[in-house]
Nucleic acid binder design. Structure first.
Lengths: 219, 219
DNA sequence: AATCATTTAAAACAACTGTTTGATACCTAC
DNA sequence: GTAGGTATCAAACAGTTGTTTTAAATGATT
């Protein structure tokens, strides 16, 4: 398995394979995707998969990490990490970033789809994802909420709020099929997505503020 | 495909097949599940699947609707529909019902897993699910939120709140693999699940009340 | 008891899967 | 130019899949 030029010429068979593999695995899942299909679309001989990646699973893992590299190129939550900003604004920034990333079908949709597929039906590669992408984002969100609560909340409450916010966003990814059929207006265009992000932020901010009152007043 | 005795003797091969099929499809998904595996576990000849259900897909659809019948036998949201109760209490009841249904691994876990698998990766059978289970539940939740908002909210806001609440609950199902690794305490036992449901209800109620204020005061 | 449709059984079929093989083309370095 | 490693290819391999076939067993009806 030659290690060579992963970032080099994108026309090389090995790079075409990676790119197409992301698409096909995202579309069909690991099992339903066939190496013959991937190779055909990439204009590469079937043997190339085993030559370059040792096996179908090897290709899958490489495609997964490649998808991460690509997705982080285009969306970043750097602004949400700026601790000099008020936490309310940071929350808006974070939700906006996260929802847009989840729903961006244009050039990152396939990568996102591949990743959330892995979450819904984990293979051995899941731990890589959690360490590389999930934990850092959770940490940022936890920091924001912690500041909103003024450091008054215990760890478990903090985590529950993180889950509440992530859950509202992930709904748009994992239950996309239902959204498409019941609430298509919520993601009809970029403005609608913006409005949905706005709703989640307002909804969550209101809830957190209320928790804040509840924990400080009764004492 | 003989129509006979679906509800009759559970020892008949056709009923054993249905029951086992739910388990196996839930465990492996439609594609990864093999009819040979299902038949072996059900102590039935391989040909039985095609004899009774015409095809593997036929068995899948029957298993899916069978799973619904089973799951609705054990959990009901009747109490949450009682419009004589205060909507706050109804919201608690609904979330409690919904989250418990999603997380109940004991006797309904397989059915729930099969259903959420279908949502994450829809086959042609999805529309059956949406009509039979999703829409009725959304309607109830929408009614509760409508009352909480005192009929002041427009349709789209109502739907967004529905999604916010469902999202928080579904997180525990669709991102279960992540919860298991990052927030295992949140679903450690029955008491923890209860507490998680409590959090979602309080969190959402606070947010809705706040929306309520926001829409009535500025005018 | 004989006839009939229904059900179960074992075996084979045909298609598709990931993978390997062995031969051929390519291209660099001497 | 040629030797030697790298890359590509068509073809075949070995295993699994859903499905079909053919035949035997079953059980009710006449």
């Amino acid at each position: 398995m030659p290690e060579a030029h992963l970032t080099a010429n994108p026309e090389l068979p090995i790079n075409r394979l990676l790119q197409i593999a992301v698409e096909v695995f995202a579309e069909h899942g690991f099992r339903d995707a066939t190496v013959r299909d991937i190779c055909a679309r990439a204009n590469v001989n079937v043997a190339a998969v085993n030559y370059y990646f040792r096996s179908k699973e090897g290709l899958y893992i490489e495609a997964l990490t490649f998808a991460f590299a690509e997705i982080n190129k285009h969306h970043s939550y750097e602004a949400a990490q700026d601790s000099s900003l008020p936490p309310e604004q940071r929350l808006h920034l974070f939700i906006n970033y996260f929802l847009n990333k989840l729903l961006d079908d244009s050039h990152l949709g396939v990568q996102g789809k591949l990743i959330s597929r892995e979450i819904a039906e984990p293979t051995k590669a899941l731990d890589i994802i959690i360490a590389k992408a999930v934990i850092p984002q959770c940490t940022v969100l936890e920091d924001i909420i912690g500041r909103l609560l003024g450091g008054r909340a215990d760890k478990i409450t903090l985590q529950r709020c993180v889950m509440s916010i992530l859950g509202q966003c992930l709904m748009f990814k994992h239950s996309r099929s239902i959204i498409d059929r019941l609430f298509p207006e919520a993601i009809a265009d970029q403005a609608a997505i913006q409005a949905s992000a706005q709703h989640i932020a307002v909804f969550s901010l209101a809830a957190i503020k209320q928790l804040n009152l509840a924990t400080e007043s009764p004492l």
